[in-house]
Design a protein around this nucleic acid. Structure first.
Length: 423
RNA sequence: GGAGAGAUGGCAGAGUGGUCGAAUGCGUCUGACUCGAAAUCAGAUUUACGCGCAAGCGUAACGGGGGUUCGAAUCCCUCUCUCUCCGCCA
């Protein structure tokens, strides 16, 4: 959500920004509704002031034992008029909010303008390994090693689910522990958070109403499955004013993520790339506004550390205005090298959401020297998507015989195991 | 799932229809006293929105929503959450 006052006063700039973001929102409608809301408020407030004054007067008269019945019908009229106008305001406010919730965050000036094709590679780290054999895909490897099975999952749940077995399952668990331990060392507090959340939580983080079709819903209980732990972490301080000195707050949480992937039926049908349920370690920060851009660099670096330590080649991409996420002012994607696809694939997305989520959720903080509470800035990033890390390890560490070497940093988490091979 | 109790400002805690945005205490801030501090005294101390160049003014908010009334923190309905007891349960 944007500051309506800012939008009103910077119409041209906002219009351009929304166009750059491929937003279909009708800004004129937004401004018109905002104007009408204020006009109505001014006139109803005047009437309320009159009514309040009169009611006070009535109280005084009654105390003095005077008869007030003659005024009551007159005031009843005024009161009814106010009620009717309040109804109108509520209707306009609802319309305004419906539009307002469709407006994405404005992109930072440093964000390249354009669609996906305008995404900018910022840096590459690590050299893709040259194989002297044709590298297999991770599902060939995983299924071959007996540590990955989709057929069982299909029987249990349907398409886009998976099962991991033995060292495959242990590798997943090792990755989660390794990631969380690393982030703890960087000052993140570790949390376990709800996976089923209320509508308001999804709305606050920016998922709803725009992406409601992408969420699994437990309709009977009015709950939604989180598509990322970002949702729960973002809502941790909803409606709070954080005391001076409490920022930055850095949180890390492991959770499964549930996504309907509606409309992606043809895409990534094989393997672990695109699933209805996958595991992820999520990073989240609440920071002071002037520090959020710098925090985005730091948070991205924290996620990159995992890839570096695992020895996985990757690149960092600054997403263009039309490709960045809805709530974000700037997003870096981390893309890991996949030999079987001979390309880089997204494994993490790190965003600065500025005050966009904070405004929706009413999350403020106080500064040391006093002063009015201000909205915080929020950031989130995957650190990392565990399933995609799992598959990247299989592909990048595979050997000609179909076995997979275990990256050094993970061995302590796997009882010293150095390789996954056919039993 | 059943029975009951409760939700008020940063915290504690009054307030059951009429100058209540809300007593009092604590906390916090400012000033006085002091070499300084403590203690004491005086004052201040919510937020959002709107109008205004500004000083300021207006409106709203006592868990959320709705209702009764000229007027609601106070009465009625409803939802949510918290607590206690019973049942069930990993």
């Amino acid at each position: 959500m944007l500051d309506p006052k800012y939008v009103r006063e910077h119409e041209a700039e906002v219009r351009q920004a929304l166009e750059n973001c491929r937003s279909k929102v009708d800004l004129s409608l937004y401004l018109d509704l905002e104007r009408r809301r204020r006009d109505l408020m001014v006139s109803v407030d005047k009437r309320k002031a009159r009514l309040n004054q009169a009611s006070e007067e009535m109280g005084r008269m009654k105390k003095e034992g005077k008869d007030i019945s003659q005024y009551q019908s007159k005031l009843k009229e005024l009161s009814d008029e106010i009620k009717q106008m309040d109804g109108e305001i509520a209707a306009v406010e609802k319309d305004f909010r419906d539009v307002e919730l469709q407006v994405c965050n404005l992109p930072h000036p440093s964000v390249p303008v354009g669609g996906e094709e305008a995404n900018q590679e910022v840096r590459r780290v690590g050299e893709p390994k040259q194989f002297d054999f044709k590298p297999k895909t991770h599902d060939e490897l995983g299924v071959g090693l007996g540590i990955l099975d989709f057929e069982k999952a299909a029987k249990i749940s349907g398409a886009r689910f998976f099962t991991l077995w033995n060292l495959g399952a242990k590798l997943e668990r090792a990755l989660v522990n390794f990631m969380l331990d690393h982030h703890a060392s960087k000052g993140y507090q570790e949390l376990v958070v709800p996976h089923l959340v209320a509508y308001e939580s999804m709305e606050m983080s920016g998922q709803f109403p725009k992406f409601i079709e992408q969420a699994f819903a437990v309709e009977k209980d009015n709950l939604y499955l989180i598509p990322t732990a970002e949702v729960s972490l973002a809502n941790l301080h909803r409606g709070e004013t954080l005391p001076a000195g409490s920022l930055p707050k850095k949180y890390a949480a492991f959770s499964p993520c549930y996504r309907r992937e509606a409309g992606s039926y043809g895409k990534d049908t094989k393997g672990l790339i695109r699933l209805h349920q996958f595991n992820k370690v999520e990073l989240f920060q609440f920071v002071e506004p002037e520090k959020s851009m710098e925090a985005l660099e730091a948070l991205t670096a924290d996620a990159e550390d995992i890839l570096k330590k695992l020895g996985l080649p990757y690149r960092v991409v600054a997403l263009a205005t039309g490709d960045k996420s809805f709530a974000s002012t700037k997003t870096y994607d981390l893309e890991v090298w996949l030999p079987s696809q001979n390309t880089y694939r997204e494994i993490s997305s790190c965003s600065n959401c500025t005050d966009f989520q904070a405004r929706r959720g009413g999350i403020k903080f106080k500064r040391e020297g006093g002063g009015k509470p201000e909205l915080v800035h929020t950031l989130n990033g995957s650190g990392l998507a565990v399933g995609r890390t799992w598959l990247a390890i299989l592909e990048n560490y595979q050997k000609a015989d179909g076995s997979v070497e275990i990256p050094e940093v993970l061995r302590p988490y796997l009882g010293g195991q150095t390789v996954i091979s056919r039993p």
